[in-house]
Design a protein around this nucleic acid. Sequence first.
DNA 1: TTTTTTGTTATAGTAAATATAGAACAGTTC
DNA 2: GAACTGTTCTATATTTACTATAACAAAAAA
Lengths: 126, 126
Amino acid sequence: MVILDPESNIPLYMQLRTQIIEAIVRGDLALGDTLPSVRGLAGDLGINMHTVNKSYHELEAKGIIEIVPKKGAVIIANTEKGPSNKQREDITEELRPAVAEALVHGMKEADLHQLISELILKMKGT
Amino acid sequence: MVILDPESNIPLYMQLRTQIIEAIVRGDLALGDTLPSVRGLAGDLGINMHTVNKSYHELEAKGIIEIVPKKGAVIIANTEKGPSNKQREDITEELRPAVAEALVHGMKEADLHQLISELILKMKGT
DNA sequence: TTTTTTGTTATAGTAAATATAGAACAGTTC
DNA sequence: GAACTGTTCTATATTTACTATAACAAAAAA
């Protein structure tokens, strides 16, 4: 279930790619599953085909899906095997600003671990 | 020491505000210290005054500095006291996409804690 | 085999975000 | 008084984000 907020300061294509990733994490989508066609999903969400296409290509760049021309997009992310070195570095840089903000407000290492654990629970939950 | 990358896809004002936060985390800037004037810092960095001003106002919105008109910007972030509820929620939402990406690539909770710990070390170190 | 659907590419346009530039104002500091 | 401060205003250029069509060629379905 994807819900986009057109008023958000977060671009639509980012909201979409994040929610697709979370759908995989929840198990709503699994390895080998195919994503809806760019036209189909765009129609359902009431947004433009190119916006969906941009999300898909970002997911492909992250190694989460594979786009087969003229066919469709298939999930290739292996939620069992760990991340590659590059993926791990990308994740680190993505975490950096938020971690810095946490530390500047006095959060301790243990607090951050707790917060992360809560986030994981919420994300994997209903 | 602030270094900006004009070629980055990350806006200058975001790079700047993140690096100021990290400077506080490192201890290069402390509670009560005043930031350089918007004109002064803009000159040093070779960017526009308004760009620096935008960074400062984002830091103020995050409760990290206080801008006193006609005087300057003072650091009010207390790196000892924990974050407010709102700050904690903001940090959680900022972490969400990166955590989702980590999980989709098969990182386990313990792996993420390890990665966070490494990040904190790097951030507080030289 | 015809039709539909697929991702891709190209062009075009609007709106917002980002960054710069210069000027003026009114307090603060020296 | 002079220099410096953040603030506000106008203005402009560039990039990003999003939408809108259209056309293409290959795959899939009828």
